[in-house]
Design a protein around this nucleic acid. Structure first.
Lengths: 221, 221
DNA sequence: GCGGCACTCCTCCTCCAGGAGGAGGCCGGC
DNA sequence: GCCGGCCTCCTCCTGGAGGAGGAGTGCCGC
């Protein structure tokens, strides 16, 4: 069950959201707030999983509210709602730690899906804005490969496939799950895992995962 | 009507995608290609609206293919498919001009929605990767506050002893070794480990170790 | 053509990890 | 005093992990 707090200065809009979310058995609206200041208090009291936050509000704007909420309750995800695409408000909210944002005129199904997405720790960005984000990022994208400038000698002996398997191990996947993900038999995965362990000098997969993190093959983010 | 070209070295996978897309009246698969070189030719000949492209292929990789397609036919949108979240392949594809990317194990409905999204000129990024993108962008954004370590409260419920045990797990130690290190019986360690797994919602110690790294309890250094 | 490597898949076997379901001792708060 | 949380230790049991030992494919270089 995912608990949701609605934050918007329009009571009618909150009403509408509540209606939409009531139809979902796994979502529960536990509270509402009309401005940012009240929102912060509500989060402290109710500990919702997700906060649906309008960024443009009179009396305590959504950005500083988002900042405070994220700082005080990192496990609470803030999903920001805007009227326009990617304006300075949306950027500000993302900087403040929001888990994503949607347009207010999004489809109900889209909204519901977005809430579930941020609830499980992922992020959401409205499609039209995603393009702008990608464009903005284009020149910022790692031209080399910051994720792996290392080429730590320990990974040198691994084949591409083995590296792939190790990466999935580092995500916490079991052999069976890795097999499904890579469309392989579980036996083959075990072979790869065995090779990885031997080459890394690891006794079990946990030690291999440690190496994956140390070398940067896997990143905590 | 949106026309689609499938590019993947696995015939079976193409078959699967074709099945999924056939069920959609507004989508039509007009061709297939098994490698990047053929894909470029196919695009020139068939002028599809959207190209569904696997980045990891033998013989002409998906990245250079994406580059060439986007350069020669700007109206053709390339949607990239990857096995992992945001790896070097995905970054490369986005740099090359792809309109977005999805994980291969995405839901059919997700895939179909993504095709329609890129067809109308918007972009799509897999939810899990969106978070990483936002994190990457965070410091790039104007007036960016340094992305605080954001004390993760997933460890909040853990007792000091449990935290200690988790830390040793993250070093790759077995239950027996942890017992020796902490001068405990192996049984006790198993109890602590069990509690840690339950509190973190982890299925096995590997997943717990992943959380340890994500929260900063353990560091790759 | 042939060896080497990467990738795939198999069986049999052992052992540890993890769940279920306990139990007792210690300490601090109400 | 009693309750609750934390730490300690136990048994029984199942499933998956990992080792040993092969085997077949395809690709590449010599």
């Amino acid at each position: 069950m995912t608990t949701v707090l609605l934050v918007d200065d329009h009571a009618l809009l909150r009403k509408g959201f509540r209606m939409v979310l009531q139809a979902e058995p796994d979502l529960e609206v536990v509270g509402e707030a009309a401005d940012g200041r009240v929102a912060v208090e509500q989060v402290r009291a109710l500990r919702p999983d997700v906060v649906l936050m309008d960024v443009r509000m009179p009396g305590g704007d959504g950005i500083t509210a988002t900042e405070q909420i994220v700082a005080a309750h990192p496990s609470t995800r803030v999903l920001v709602l805007t009227t326009f695409d990617l304006d300075e408000y949306a950027f500000g909210a993302l900087r403040a730690g929001a888990s994503g944002f949607l347009l207010k005129n999004a489809e109900p199904a889209e909204l519901v899906a977005a809430i579930r997405t941020v609830a499980r720790g992922d992020a959401v960005v409205a499609p039209r804005a995603t393009r702008r984000m990608l464009d903005l990022m284009a020149d910022k994208l790692p031209a080399g490969d910051p994720a792996e400038p290392r080429a730590d000698d320990r990974l040198a002996g691994l084949t591409p496939r083995e590296r792939e398997v190790l990466q999935l191990m580092a995500e916490g996947l079991s052999n069976t799950e890795i097999a499904e993900r890579l469309v392989l038999s579980a036996t083959t995965v075990k072979t790869h895992v065995g090779n990885v362990l031997a080459k890394l000098g690891a006794r079990d997969r946990v030690q291999a995962v440690v190496v994956a993190y140390q070398t940067g093959l896997a990143t905590p983010g």
